[in-house]
């Protein structure tokens, strides 16, 4: 492994462990409640769900079949909270690549090593991608284990498809954070961009679907390519996932170009 990737992973280690533990606890707890919910069918009966305002149901991805294993797993883990938490993890790690060290003034010495800036950025990104992959793999194992323990009856293939989408989504947001950081060197700016694009993208994708005036905005929402294919139900939405990957690649290229020509630390 290249020295800088190893070194960056070392720097991410504590954060990675913390977020993995947190995400696993979240998944394990919420998924295991499923069993007790099923013992009390009243909670999620059609009538009970119908009491929620329509907009709220939209925001939660419909909740139409929340009483089934797939519906519950989607609503609880893959609809909102899972991606939200994992994206926060990706944004925090993404900021550690350039903007964090730049604000802390430790980047200057790294830059004066005999490594060109493109390689520096690529290796930092590789460490970010590997770190997120590790978190994704562990959480995949926990989601699979917990859902089979709760008798959800969701095949592994479906969970894998959904989890892959989750990984691609957070990789996109992590790369976005890194890219804004590489271009401007400010953590807050990067977090703001990720927050606005992520939250607006989610709202447009869920509530905006039915509003003609803004529904076209779904095409520029990364969340669209994560949710629209309903991988937990319909398997791999290859096209959508390729869009996420392609957008990530574009961001990475942008980051390389922006970082290459910039004054660092001013």
């Amino acid at each position: 492994m290249p020295t800088l990737v190893r070194k960056s992973l070392g720097e991410y280690r504590r954060a990675l462990i913390g977020w993995t533990v947190g995400l696993c606890a979240f998944l394990g707890m919420y998924i295991s409640i499923y069993a007790s919910m099923m013992n009390d069918p009243e909670t999620f009966s059609k009538q009970a769900i119908a009491k929620y305002p329509g907009a709220l149901r939209d925001l939660m991805g419909g909740m139409a079949d929340i009483a089934t294993g797939r519906g519950y797993l989607q609503a609880v883990a893959y609809q909102l909270l899972g991606p939200l938490l994992f994206t926060m993890c990706a944004a925090i790690l993404g900021n550690r690549a350039i903007a964090g060290p730049e604000e802390a003034k430790t980047l200057e010495l790294t830059l004066t090593l005999p490594i060109d800036r493109r390689r520096l950025l690529l290796e930092r990104w590789a460490a970010l991608a590997l770190g997120l992959l590790a978190v994704a793999l562990v959480t995949l194992a926990v989601a699979t284990g917990a859902s089979s323990a709760a008798d959800m009856d969701v095949p592994f293939g479906s969970i894998l498809a959904a989890h892959t989408g989750l990984f691609l989504l957070v990789l996109f947001f992590g790369t976005l954070t890194l890219c804004v950081g590489a271009a401007f060197g400010r953590k807050q700016v990067a977090l703001a961009v990720v927050g606005v694009w992520g939250v607006a993208g989610y709202i447009v994708e869920t509530m905006g679907k039915s509003i003609d005036a803004i529904s076209w905005l779904r095409w520029i929402s990364p969340v669209h390519y994560y949710l629209d294919g309903r991988p937990l139900y319909q398997g791999w939405p290859y096209g959508d996932y390729l869009v996420l990957l392609g957008a990530t690649a574009v961001l990475l290229m942008t980051a390389l170009l922006a970082f290459e020509r910039r004054d660092v630390g001013v």
Binding site: E11, T106, E108, L109, T112
Partner: peptide, 19 residues
């Protein structure tokens, strides 16, 4: 970048951080 292997640099605002 290769030439920087032959340079020793001490920054004026040296920051060292972390565990």
């Amino acid at each position: 970048p290769r030439v920087r292997a032959r340079i020793g640099y001490l920054p004026g605002e040296l920051a060292l951080e972390g565990r």
